[in-house]
Amino acid sequence: MTFEELKEIVKLIDSSEISLFEYEAKGISLRLDKSINRTGERNRVNEEDTLNHNLSPSDFKINDASDKNIENNEKIEQWEIVKSPIVGTFYSSPAPDKEAFCSISQKVSKGDVLCIIEAMKLMNEIESPYDGEIIDVLVEDGSTVEYGEPLFKIRKQV
């Protein structure tokens, strides 16, 4: 396994929802565990989120352009997570009696306001960085959010 292949594996696992990945072949052992944070504390992990298989080299391919698993007419779904840029309180609407800025299945354009995060009595509008469709709202109205916490899942417009 080359260093470039190892970097690609790490990148693929990091961008996926896989919590645990183990690989062993020809004296090479690789274990990537995203359920442990930098302080050494274990994050909550569901058994369904865990991948723990012994793979053989023939099971694993990296960027093999000759291997076409997807038909040309098959659409690849691409989505992105919008994360909180600050710590504060999440509000889905401009006021309690007003309609939410966005909802699931709603189309949004880059720059559209998705929510407000109140921090130190300041109301910060969080805008969509992408054109697309809201797949999921990941936090509840009125809840406290941390820096980097996922707020929305948006299907990017291709």
Rank of each mutant, 00 (worst) to 15 (best):
A25I: 02
I28H: 06
S105Q: 13
V108W: 00
E8R: 10
G132H: 02
D67Q: 14
K156M: 11
Q78N: 13
K34A: 07
S19D: 12
N37A: 05
V87S: 01
I126W: 01
Q106D: 14
F90H: 02
Y23P: 08
S29H: 10
K7H: 12
G148Q: 05
F90G: 01
T39L: 12
E4V: 07
I18N: 06
S19K: 15
L6V: 06
I154V: 15
A100G: 00
S103E: 10
S16R: 11
K121P: 12
S103P: 00
Q106F: 02
M123C: 09
G40I: 07
D136W: 02
L6F: 12
E8Y: 01
Y147W: 03
C115M: 04
D97F: 10
E5I: 03
S16N: 12
D49Q: 15
K121C: 11
C115L: 06
K34S: 06
I76T: 11
I154C: 04
K83G: 00
D97L: 12
A119D: 02
D97V: 08
L55F: 15
V158P: 01
E99Q: 14
E4A: 09
T39R: 11
S19M: 15
L32Y: 12
P150C: 03
R155C: 04
I18Q: 07
K156P: 02
Y91V: 02
K68H: 06
E127N: 12
V145I: 05
V139G: 04
Q78W: 00
K98G: 00
P57K: 04
K61H: 13
K121L: 11
E80P: 02
I135W: 00
L122Q: 09
R42V: 12
I13Q: 03
E74V: 10
E149L: 07
K107P: 01
K61S: 14
E77D: 13
A65V: 07
V82G: 04
V113Q: 06
L6T: 01
Y130W: 09
Y147I: 01
D67A: 11
L51T: 08
T50K: 14
P150I: 02
G148Y: 05
P94Y: 05
L12E: 13
S15Q: 15
E8S: 13
V139F: 05
A25S: 14
K61R: 13
S143L: 00
S128L: 04
F101E: 00
E41C: 06
T144S: 13
V87E: 01
A100L: 02
G148H: 05
I36F: 09
T89E: 13
S93Q: 13
I126P: 00
T50E: 10
F3W: 07
F101Q: 01
E80H: 10
